[in-house]
Amino acid sequence: MSTPTPPTLDTHQAKLAAIRKLIASAKRWDLVFAGAGLLALSFGLLVLVALFADMLISGWMRINLDFFVSFPSRRAENAGILSAWVGSLMVMFVTALSAIPVGVAAGVYLEEYAAKNWITDIIEINITNLAGVPSIVYGLLALGLFVYQFGFGQSVLSAGLTLGLLILPIVIVATREAIRSIPQVIREGSYALGATKWQTTADHIVPYSMPGILTGCIIGLSRAIGETAPIITIGALTFIAFLPASPVSASAPFINFDWLMSGFTVMPIQMFNWTSRPEEAFQQNAAAAGVVLVVMTLSLNAIAIYIRYRLRKNIKW
């Protein structure tokens, strides 16, 4: 039997070295993981680059003025996207006109007016759920409701309203977030001067949250412009060699609404149509249309980012 020897300086140092080694080896995992993280991130970036480069390379030859001012054609080299981009613009107009007022009003109601009760709870749960409904289900709603029950047919109006419903949750959420960032003292100041709730809202709350609201609306529209599935579902035609009637005319009454009920096609549908053809010439057209579509989406996003940047710079509560 020997009594346990008290730890000498040497064994103590040895233990310390062992612990240090353990930590060092654990820290190696830090590096490995940081590397993996960067790799995963750059993989995402790589996909984006490959996507754009591939489309640009195959579509470059087709992007010229003729491509923008020609109707689709059975001969790939004559085909263009005139009816598609005009259709997209018209549909976006209806979408913006329907979704933005309703969405902003709903956001204002939920932030400024709504009482904390079960009806408000239902509306809130409902908005989060709507944001998760697949876009094609909106297409089915529009097919049953707008196209057949309301009798709008397969028109610009049906498509615009469908996309309007689709981006409504985006507009509502953006409006609420913008309003929430306005400090309470602004409201109190307005009430102290005798303003009513609506005067406070219309003269202070909404103008001050405008940049945030605009950003949300633009991001919603950039989502809508690329949506294909719901518009195919309502039965948009894929081959359209005419333009909807012009909304403005030279003679009285100058403005007409025939275009609302007109048949139409939009950019993503035109691209889908060309992609699903076996001939390579049409697939080049698809690539060119894709480049145009991406540029449209990206420029909308860039505008939104710019507005957000201005907002951060100019407003300090």
Binding site: L293, V294, N301
Partner: peptide, 12 residues
């Protein structure tokens, strides 16, 4: 990556 229209991913 989430903002690119899905039809473009289909093409890709």
């Amino acid at each position: 990556l989430a903002g690119v229209p899905t039809v473009i991913y289909g093409y890709f």
